[in-house]
């Protein structure tokens, strides 16, 4: 087996993991379960990106996507208590719900472990694109879009803040007890 075939096998396995995890994610009833499956899927995709020679993208995927964006999701679900839909409250959570994620996670883990432990080298790939190259491109060629991306994030922050703030309504004291029935938007 050539060294590069490890990457191929790795790619195939991670792609299968990603696909299955995504499929699982969209079919769960519990939102938190679905989110966790989604995180597994993201990690699979990250692995896929690593195997084709884009380590920078892979790392970014883990840090930003799985690390930040999914955290947002999880926090929201937790905050609003959306994890359990009314009909699910009666269902028991038993071992059955754990099997599949475990299998998936184990597969992913093992593959990653095997590949790292088998001294993977970058040879045989086309060429690995180093973060250095990405950075060089980002700040010369794509400088303007990068700045715009920053502005976009600013807009998102402001928008999210504005939409999410609670406004205090000044009601006449006779109407104070009606405040709960109103939803302030």
């Amino acid at each position: 087996m050539q060294k590069n075939t490890y990457m191929d096998i790795l790619f195939i396995v991670s792609s299968i993991v990603a696909v299955i995890a995504s499929a699982m994610a969209i079919t769960r009833r519990n939102a938190v379960h679905a989110l966790l499956f989604l995180i597994v899927s993201l990690m699979g995709v990250s692995m896929m990106m690593y195997t084709i020679g884009a380590p920078y993208a892979a790392i970014l995927e883990i840090i930003v996507y799985a690390g930040a964006i999914m955290m947002l999701f999880v926090f929201t679900v937790m905050m609003l208590n959306l994890s359990v839909s009314p009909e699910d409250e009666k269902r028991k959570t038993g071992f059955k719900t754990w099997i599949f994620p475990l299998i998936l996670g184990a597969v992913l883990l093992s593959i990653m472990a095997i590949s790292f432990l088998r001294d993977p080298s970058w040879e045989g790939l086309h060429q690995v694109i180093l973060p250095k190259h990405v950075g060089r491109l980002m700040f010369s060629h794509y400088l303007l879009p990068v700045e715009l991306a920053g502005v976009l994030l600013l807009a998102a922050i402001v928008g999210a803040y504005y939409l999410g703030r609670t406004r205090k309504r000044n009601l006449h004291r006779y109407l104070q007890n009606q405040e709960d029935s109103y939803d302030t938007l």
Binding site: L60, E61, I69, T76, V134, A149, L152, L153, I157, G159
Partner: peptide
């Protein structure tokens, strides 16, 4: 490297969108 730069932008957009979408969800 252009592909990964594009990936970065997509990521940015996804992040912004998630932020606003979750605010709307709340």
């Amino acid at each position: 490297a252009d592909g990964q730069v594009m990936f970065l932008f997509v990521l940015t957009v996804a992040a912004a969108e998630v932020a606003v979408a979750l605010a709307l969800l709340i």
